[in-house]
């Protein structure tokens, strides 16, 4: 069983590349049982979404889109 630290690293990497099957399995198993890592997973996805929204808002706030 991987530690929370190791799982959170994989969760973060999973946002930027495709994890191996084994990695995905261990994340999935861990996250089923660990609320904090599950929270980290949804929150890092949320942060990505927020960053995009922030950029979109900035573009419309500062004028036309290119």
């Amino acid at each position: 069983m991987r530690s929370c630290r190791a799982v959170s690293v994989l969760v973060s990497q999973g946002l930027d590349k495709k994890l191996s099957l084994r990695e995905r399995c261990s994340v999935w198993l861990h996250v089923m049982m660990c609320t904090r890592c599950r929270n980290f997973q949804t929150q890092s996805q949320f942060i990505r979404k927020a960053a995009r929204r922030y950029t979109d808002d900035l573009q419309s706030r500062l004028g036309k889109k290119s």
Binding site: S3, C4, T35, C37, N39, F40, T42, Q43, K49
Partner: peptide, 23 residues
């Protein structure tokens, strides 16, 4: 600071109430 030497969270992520509404 975010993790203990055991690899467990120090504190760590709590559940967030309605992040969508925050946006």
């Amino acid at each position: 600071d975010y993790f203990a030497s055991s690899g467990h969270w120090n504190g760590g992520p709590k559940a967030w109430a309605d992040p969508e509404a925050a946006l």
